[in-house]
């Protein structure tokens, strides 16, 4: 209740209260405060992907990795040629939904000799994420999008390659008894020199 200095009933001029600075600050704070609550709640939900890290696209991401069986050892000839193998995500999820097993992006598997553990190369180009393919003619791996070229082991062939790093390798494990080849399936951030799992 501020005191009023001028007293007029004129429609045009209106009394300007004295000592109103405190009221002004308070009014502004109170008004903003009231609107801040719903806005903050809204932004919390909007920022949910940042605030709550949860793994999308499969929940196999436990501490010991996301191991998926992709092939039998005898399906990989010991000739050093990378071949594509399908990766099946056993438990795909998307937000509230859980799906039947469905395919993920494939991997390239190769081995040079019989007694070598196969090498697994992710087909996702580290540049901007297109899918690379093996070109048998030149024994290279090509990315069709911006023409990155890698050798059969995934190394960049030229120093001015658009890709910031070599193709990503995935961990491989062979079950001695069954001959199953398992891959620790991961995705990595694109566009940066360091290999960083998503």
């Amino acid at each position: 209740m501020s005191e009023v200095t001028t007293n007029t009933t004129d429609n045009k001029t209106v009394a300007e209260p004295r000592r109103s600075f405190g009221s002004k600050v308070l009014a502004a704070l109170v008004g903003i405060g009231a609107l801040l609550v719903p806005t903050a709640a809204g932004f919390a939900v909007l920022l949910d992907p940042v605030l709550k890290k949860r793994k999308q696209g499969g929940d196999g991401g436990s501490d010991d990795g996301n191991w998926i069986r992709v092939a039998s050892l005898n399906q990989i000839p010991p000739d050093g040629v990378p071949r594509q193998f399908a990766v099946i995500d056993p438990k795909p999820i998307d937000k509230w939904n859980r799906y039947e097993p469905q395919s993920e992006r494939p991997v390239l598997l190769s081995r040079d000799s019989e007694d070598e553990t196969p090498m697994a190369i992710s087909v996702t180009c580290p540049h901007l994420g297109c899918i690379v393919t093996y070109d048998a003619k030149d024994d290279t791996i090509l990315c069709p999008c911006h023409n990155a070229v890698f050798d059969a082991e995934g190394k960049r062939l030229s120093p001015d390659c658009v890709s910031p790093r070599d193709l990503d390798h995935l961990e491989v494990r062979v079950d001695e008894q069954t001959g199953d080849v398992l891959v620790n399936y991961k995705r990595f951030k694109g566009g940066i020199a360091a290999q960083e799992a998503i």
Binding site: S2, T8, V14, E16, P17, S20, L26, A28
Partner: peptide
């Protein structure tokens, strides 16, 4: 007396 809306 009348008063302006802001701030009271």
């Amino acid at each position: 007396p009348d008063a302006p809306y802001w701030p009271d």
